[in-house]
Design a protein around this nucleic acid. Structure first.
Length: 399
DNA sequence: TCTGGGGTCCTAGGACCC
DNA sequence: TCTGGGGTCCTAGGACCC
């Protein structure tokens, strides 16, 4: 995937001069933040995940084996990973692997605050940053003075100074390689690679190590006898295009050779805001109608709060249902007038709800505000009348 | 052991307009 | 009477990422 890069902009470098792009990734982030708070847990297997339960136990920590529910592992310490525990794994499965591991509920407010702290520390040294979520960023070091490795070490030191946490950094000519490089020596890693290092350092890795090759593509490649990035690099591009389509096939070939011209995105506008929840037990649209209605109204209120706080209006509203068999359906509704209030969201959701099958138990409800526009860029044509609100969201006839 | 919650991007068909 | 191509919007689903 080659986009016109910004590497030849008017920055004094020649057209062939490589960029210096860093990927900085916090090590076992949520778990590491918790270890700052509970140093006595250091060295133990600790798993973050699940919902905050009632204040619970008297002083002690909850053991994973006592968990019952539908939560997944958000992060695990390296000690817990040694038992095979992985991010995204169901907590019940993790409990079978590491029953004595400590289970802590996530505290996202704290993780966000620490995230802002480490990003500010980095920005003081390298201000061109692409935010990639709570625990990772890309940096453009091209115009930051200093020898590459020393500069990367300075960044690591600044993060540790500001937060007490370790991170791993990869510095390479582009984002794709930087992401791969930051993983190579985790935790507390520092890896500098050039394009010439790709055969020795990148080609032995499995294809799924590449950002953008997920479980599906990986399985398909494996079925084609392609397991490593090196094997992918040797595949004929036309053959890849035949099997993966023009766009993805061509990108696979470029990625395997470590080529990537994507520029850093130092700012972006959100495209959608959503809220969803998985129930503790599956709910039936008929028998549990009242509870489902209550949950959906609560989601509308939370989404309305999000929109108001961030200053956006929605021009489309989406509904998402997940059935007991994990199959998922979505319905979208475009709106003549952008909305943000809970009542209006509820009316839009009601029209979506009329278009989905409600004959099976549900495990998840979600709603989404899409095609966002900023409140201050939209001048409402006076007061628009809203449709009246009825008693329940789920229509009697279907339920 | 059945799989969270918040996002982005891509594809593809149909409607509709020029 | 039939054929057409391009562009945009809407909708649904799916892959992928953190």
């Amino acid at each position: 995937m080659t986009l016109p890069g910004d590497s030849t902009a008017d920055d004094g470098r020649g057209p062939t001069e490589p960029r210096r792009i860093a990927h900085l990734d916090m090590d076992a982030y949520f778990a590491s933040v918790e270890l700052l708070r509970y140093p006595e847990l250091r060295g133990q297997p600790v798993v973050i995940g699940g919902r905050r339960t009632a204040p619970a136990d008297s002083g002690g920590f909850q053991r994973l084996r006592t968990y019952a529910g539908r939560g997944v592992v958000t992060t695990a310490t390296y000690e817990a990973r040694a038992f095979g525990v992985r991010s995204g794994m169901g907590l019940m499965k993790a409990a079978a692997l590491a029953p004595e591991a400590i289970l802590l509920p996530g505290d996202f407010e704290t993780y966000s605050r620490v995230s802002r702290t480490f990003k500010a520390a980095v920005a003081a040294i390298a201000p061109r940053i692409e935010d990639r979520g709570i625990d990772e960023i890309y940096l453009d070091l091209t115009d930051v003075p200093g020898e590459t490795r020393a500069l990367a070490q300075r960044l690591k030191d600044a993060v540790r100074e500001a937060t007490g946490l370790s991170c791993s950094i990869g510095v390479t000519p582009n984002k794709l390689l930087a992401k791969l490089a930051s993983e190579l020596q985790k935790p507390d890693g520092l890896t500098v690679l050039g394009l010439e290092d790709v055969p020795a350092r990148i080609w032995p890795l499995p294809c799924a190590a590449i950002n953008g090759i997920g479980p599906k593509a990986s399985a398909k490649l494996e079925a084609l006898q392609i397991r490593t990035i090196g094997e992918l690099a040797k595949a004929d591009p036309a053959w890849l295009v035949d099997r993966f389509g023009q766009s993805y096939g061509a990108w696979l070939h470029e990625a395997a050779h470590g080529r990537d011209e994507r520029p850093l995105m130092t700012s972006r506008e959100p495209k959608s805001i959503s809220r969803e929840t998985t129930f503790e037990r599956d709910l039936h649209p008929r028998q549990d109608r009242a509870e489902l209605t209550r949950i959906l109204l609560h989601l509308c209120e939370r989404l309305a709060e999000d929109l108001a706080r961030k200053g956006f209006l929605a021009r489309t509203v989406g509904l998402k249902l997940r059935y007991e068999d994990f199959s998922t359906v979505t319905r979208d509704q475009a709106l003549a007038v952008p909305i943000a209030e809970a009542d209006a969201l509820r009316e839009a959701v009601r029209t979506c709800l009329r278009r989905v099958p409600l004959d099976r138990k549900l495990r998840l409800l979600g709603i989404r505000a899409g095609s966002l526009i900023r409140v201050d860029e939209f001048r409402a044509p006076a007061k628009t009348p809203r449709p009246g609100v009825g008693p329940g969201l789920f229509p009697d006839s279907d339920l």
